[in-house]
C-alpha cells in the first residue's frame, strides 16, 4: 500500500509531502502527540481526504479502529456488528461468532447495548468488527492500550498472525510492547514518516 506526496494542514501543516510504502506485516507508528499519526490513519482509511497527494488503496479494503470505536450506542453489540458487516457485504452469523471469540468477547452478553460497555470491552467489540470485516488492511489507532495485559497479548497474537496476509498499521506510544514481534517501526515527526528498522 503506497502513500504518495500526502500533505494535510489544519491552519498549520500537519503532514507535509509524505510518501511511504507499507507492506504485509505489523507496522507500528510512533511519534509525539499532535504529529499527525491519527490524521495519517484517517487518510489511509478514507475517513479524511488529503489536501494533496494520494493513497493507492480503495477505502473498501481498509478496516479502521480509532480511539472512539464507531458504534451506535443504543444498539446492542451484535446489532452493531451485523450492521457494519452488512456494509462491507460480509455479514454472516459464523463470521460474527468467530470474530467475537477471537476478540475475547465470548463471555460478554452480546445483547447489551454498546453504551453500557466498558472502554476495554468497547475496544474488543471494535476488534471483533475488524476481524469479522477481514479486510486486507487494518489501521488501529492508539486503542489497544485500553486493554488489560491478557487481552492485549491475545489481540497482539491474533494481529501478528493475521499480519502474514494483511497490512496492519498500529499507532502506539508503547513501542516496547511490540518489540518481540516481527514488526516494522515507523516514526512520525514534523509531518514526515521515517522507517526506523
Amino acid at each position: 500500500m503506497e502513500l504518495k506526496g500526502i500533505s494535510k494542514a489544519f491552519k498549520a501543516p500537519v503532514i507535509n509531502d509524505l510518501s511511504a510504502s507499507f507492506n504485509r506485516g505489523l507496522n507500528i507508528i510512533t511519534g509525539p502527540n499532535g504529529c499527525g499519526k491519527t490524521t495519517l490513519l484517517k487518510i489511509i482509511s478514507g475517513h479524511m481526504l488529503p489536501d494533496k497527494g494520494e493513497v493507492l488503496v480503495s477505502p473498501e479494503n481498509v478496516s479502521a479502529l480509532f480511539t472512539n470505536p464507531c458504534f451506535y450506542p443504543q444498539l446492542t453489540v451484535i446489532e452493531n456488528l451485523e450492521f457494519f458487516l452488512a456494509l462491507s457485504g460480509k455479514s454472516s452469523k459464523s463470521r460474527i461468532e468467530n470474530a467475537v471469540r477471537m476478540s475475547g468477547l465470548d463471555n460478554l452478553d452480546l445483547n447489551k447495548k454498546t453504551e453500557t460497555l466498558s472502554s476495554g470491552n468497547l475496544v474488543k467489540a471494535g476488534l471483533a468488527r475488524l476481524y469479522a470485516q477481514d479486510s486486507g488492511i487494518f489501521v488501529i489507532d492508539e486503542v489497544l492500550s485500553s486493554l488489560d495485559e491478557e487481552s492485549f497479548n491475545a489481540a497482539l497474537r491474533i494481529l501478528s498472525n493475521s499480519s502474514k496476509e494483511k497490512i496492519i498499521i498500529i499507532v502506539s506510544h508503547q513501542k516496547e510492547r511490540y518489540r518481540g514481534e516481527n514488526a516494522v517501526f515507523w516514526k512520525m515527526a514534523e509531518g514526515k514518516i521515517l522507517n526506523e528498522n
Binding site: 484517517k42 475517513h47 477505502p59 473498501e60 472512539n68 464507531c70 457494519f84 456494509l87
Partner: peptide, 14 residues
C-alpha cells in the same frame, strides 16, 4: 453524534 458518519461516508456506494 454517534461518530458513525465518517465510517458511512468514506465509501461511495455506502
Amino acid at each position: 453524534i454517534c461518530g458513525t458518519l465518517e465510517e458511512i461516508l468514506r465509501v461511495k456506494n455506502d
